[in-house]
Design a protein around this nucleic acid. Structure first.
Lengths: 336, 336
DNA sequence: CTGAAAGCGCTTACAG
DNA sequence: CTGAAAGCGCTTACAG
């Protein structure tokens, strides 16, 4: 039953600062939110009072009164082995610098938790919700009641519930097929998760490949997300093929890295005896030996586009476009 | 100037639900926060009203009134290449499941931003602040005014400002030195960041090694955090040594992985010609070829201990202990 | 440029 | 088990 004893001096509030500075609470509030509209001499006194009292504004009260919480919710499936880490990092850093905090919600890969997390975010009156998850019909209905900005990222659905910042997964698959073909490879294996966007890239790849060649694409499924640990099983399966593939297109750079390690262990030269392509352009892609040919997604740019849209939404301006396509780039390196 | 037009039907609030259910707002509030104290028949009506109106409680208002925000702030230096990803993931998942959201704040490796982020968290009235950062004297003064629980993790300072959940970095270094020696290695190289906890592990290692051997430890500095990309330079420096080290102790598993790749590329067998030790027991440690000998930190357990402390703090019970030592474990695998 | 006052949407003693 | 009412700490038209 022991409760932590606290110093009896309660933390100062706006009234205390106002009293000390000899102004009204309204003026202190204005100083806090819009310093320019306060007289310079008044500002000096308020600033001093705040400093002396170590005043920290209660942003729950502020948010309630202004209906702007200075919080943004970000929904991702997982944190570990995530393709989104660079995007999240850039979003958080930039928003933090502007005084907005990020609520991180983990949805897992199964459906269901996404809606609960959206509710949790709405309950906190966040200014925006940024989600990597595809949105179901029921969830769309919920989002209609969300007064903030809903941003779907890493994808470009035809009719996003809010706005979208992403790229075309089908197009990536398509371009990868052409790239591989033009490099002279003729027996591709595709290692891919079977759901969501990985599926879209797979579809694009298979379609694209069929335009060039009659050789079927050898497909190997892994669970999502593609990771280093999948490599052993995948490589074993590759070796079992009667006609050995000459290139493996992977769902992530870490899986590609794993395949290279397995190939080395088996005495296969990459890319001469087996070429490898990754996805995401993680830092290992350029640091691995051999360096890994991959698809670059500019996660930081996605973050910047999102933040710009959030800022303009908060200041009452609707984003110019419904969808922002940040594109992608195939980076040819040593592994393929 | 175009602002998004919103449906005129404002979102329902507690009064609306109360009116619909034919009870007072107090009763709805009780139902929401403590369903058991409401009569079963009343509960049925309230539940129905909430469901029909798709009511989402405003937790900013709730937090202001109750001074419990159901938010916890987590401060880490970076998201990418972070040793903390498993800890954060477990914390977020568990807290989310209990209706608490996590505010993620990035502090960078330089000082200064930590205090700003603590202020930002305090302003949002978070129930707890969880930080991986060492705390300066001024920041400690600020924390005195924080009514929530302050938890320092991944370390065990003698006098934490709040509570601490972590382990001894010096002890890890010490035990690693003994482990290496007992395995028969005699010319260790230590690759480590020079600041913070990496520095503590380094000190423990060097001290521990001196108890066994007169051979000095070859030290190579990298910037924080240790990562795969450092391997090329580090390995080159290793090869330049007149007396080649027989084991490399790394600051992370991904750096260890990089050293193995470099060794392979140079035709050196791991562990026969060069042994490698990692840190953290990331999933690659067990998936790499050879598998990587490393130090396991149970990040998920740290998260569970933190969450338990937060829960008890919120229910008014002081945590039993000031410090929780979750320990560590050296896992011997193939690489050393 | 500044102040008095109403209001944001909840929670919680207090009384019954 | 329930209700009336005060209060949480801000913001913001409105008036000057």
């Amino acid at each position: 039953m022991a409760t932590m004893v606290r110093p009896s001096t309660r933390n100062p509030k706006l009234d205390d600062v106002a009293a000390r500075a000899g102004v009204s609470t309204a003026t202190v509030s204005r100083f806090l939110n819009n310093p320019d509209i306060v007289a310079a001499s008044t500002a000096v006194r308020i600033r001093a009072a705040i400093e002396e009292m170590q005043y920290v504004p209660n942003l729950l009260a502020g948010g309630l009164a202004s209906s702007r919480s200075k919080m943004v919710a970000v929904l991702i499936p997982h944190l570990v082995d995530s393709l989104f880490d660079r995007t999240i990092e850039t979003m958080v850093e930039e928003l933090n610098a502007g005084g907005t905090m990020v609520m991180l919600a983990l949805t897992g890969t199964a459906a269901g938790r996404t809606e609960a997390m959206i509710r949790a975010a709405m309950g906190r009156q966040v200014d925006a919700i940024v989600s990597t998850a595809p949105i179901s019909a029921e969830t769309t209905a919920l989002i209609q009641h969300f007064p903030g900005l809903f941003v779907q990222i890493w994808d470009l659905p035809a009719e996003p519930p809010g706005i979208a910042v992403g790229f075309s997964h089908v197009e990536i698959g398509h371009n990868l097929a052409r790239f591989i073909y033009e490099r002279g490879y003729r027996r591709p294996a595709l290692v891919s998760a079977e759901l969501g966007r990985a599926r879209l890239r797979r579809d694009g790849f298979v379609q694209g490949w069929e335009a060039h060649s009659d050789t079927p694409v050898k497909e190997i499924a892994v669970d999502s997300p593609s990771r280093f640990g999948h490599a052993r099983r995948v490589f074993a399966e590759l070796r079992r093929q009667p006609e050995r593939p000459d290139v493996v297109v992977c769902g992530s750079d870490s899986l590609a890295q794993g395949i290279i390690v397995e190939a080395n262990a088996a005495g296969l030269k990459v890319p001469d005896q087996l070429a490898v392509v990754g996805f995401g352009n993680a830092s290992v892609a350029s640091d691995m030996r051999p360096t890994i040919t991959t698809v670059e997604i500019d996660g930081a740019q996605i973050a910047r586009e999102v933040n710009a849209a959030v800022r303009s939404h908060v200041s009452g301006v609707a984003p110019k476009q419904r969808s922002v396509n940040v594109g992608f780039r195939i980076i040819a390196r040593e592994s393929a």
